[in-house]
Simulated scan of single mutants.
Amino acid sequence: MIEVVNFTKRYGDFVAVDDLSFSIGKGEVFGFIGPNGAGKSTTIRFLATLLRPTSGEGRVCGHSVVNDPMAVRRVIGFMPDDFGVYDGMKVWEFLDFFAVAYEIPYTFRKKIIGEVLELLDLTHKRDDYVNGLSKGMKQRLCLAKTLVHDPPVLILDEPASGLDPRARLEMKALLNELRGMGKTILVSSHILSELADFCTSIGIIERGKLLAAGSIQEIQRQLRSHRVLKVRVLDETTTRAASILGDDPSVRTVELFDHTLTAEFEGQDEDMARLLGRLIGEGVQVNSFAEEPLSLEEVFMMITKGIVN
């Protein structure tokens, strides 16, 4: 649905994005991650047909970003990181304005605007003036504007920027709902923990170069040679559990802290199931037994170097 091929953008001697390539399949939610100045917004503006490349190509739903920008604009919904609103315009008028821009016939516009307002929980704000809305409501309205033509691809640049915690949770719920509707979504954000909850894949960019791309699980496996097990047991069986884990051939090391054992584990899922069965079979009272993956924040810190352009 989205393909970036050797995209490069230079401003004089400064290279903002350097030979960037990645692809996003249908129905994926791709989290685009990087520090300020990494080249995220430059890449997003290129895909949104707002920026000409120095070299390279992009395709959205098979349409060339460089050679057929109007076709690309018809199939994307673009939500920029910063947007303006119009004084003296009501919410429904704001959406109607964009519906006209997308050439939606008059006979359909009222129905479509009503459906989008309902989806974004903005029906009660229908006749409010746009410039009087809160930051969170303006973000919702911008997302609503992005959806009026029902695009299959959404490109969202920092959609939760500046929102309070409740509004961020509501925005995350909306993105999950859009994912459930089958939309392909490219979303950039600095709130990594929230991206991890709904992204199917990620790309990490720094100084204009793509450092890693793929599912979070794939990238985790590339970064860490072993798996980590967290096993919490009742006090009286702690010593027995530590002994069983320490003797298992799939376990490299075991650490104990506050009735919780942390084991570096080198086996497969079958070995993990066998180990749990052995613990229970030998009388260990297991409260919890789970693999502890790297968090998205840990992945980001391990891959990037903190260097900005």
Rank of each mutant, 00 (worst) to 15 (best):
M1W: 09
V5Y: 13
T8G: 02
T8M: 02
K9M: 08
G12W: 02
A16E: 10
L20T: 02
S21E: 08
I24S: 01
G25V: 00
G31T: 01
G31A: 08
F46H: 08
F46N: 13
F46E: 10
T49R: 12
L50Q: 13
E57L: 06
E57A: 12
V60G: 12
V60C: 11
G62P: 06
S64V: 06
S64K: 07
V65Y: 01
N67H: 12
I76E: 04
G88C: 03
D96A: 12
F97W: 12
Y102T: 05
K110W: 02
K110E: 10
I113F: 00
T123F: 05
K125Y: 12
R126L: 00
Y129R: 13
Y129D: 06
V130H: 04
N131S: 12
L133V: 13
L141P: 05
V148I: 12
D150K: 11
V153A: 08
D157F: 01
P159H: 12
G162T: 01
K183P: 00
I185W: 01
I191F: 07
I191W: 02
I191V: 14
L192G: 09
E194H: 11
F198Q: 01
C199Q: 01
T200Y: 05
I202P: 05
G208C: 07
L210K: 06
L211I: 08
S215V: 01
I219V: 02
Q220K: 10
R221L: 08
L223F: 11
R224I: 13
R227A: 11
L229C: 06
V231P: 04
V233F: 11
T237I: 10
L245R: 06
D247Y: 01
D248N: 15
D248Q: 09
S250N: 07
F257C: 13
H259P: 06
A263I: 02
A263N: 00
E264G: 01
D269P: 04
A273Q: 14
L275A: 08
L279D: 02
L279Q: 02
F289D: 00
F300C: 03
M301N: 11
K305D: 04
V308A: 15
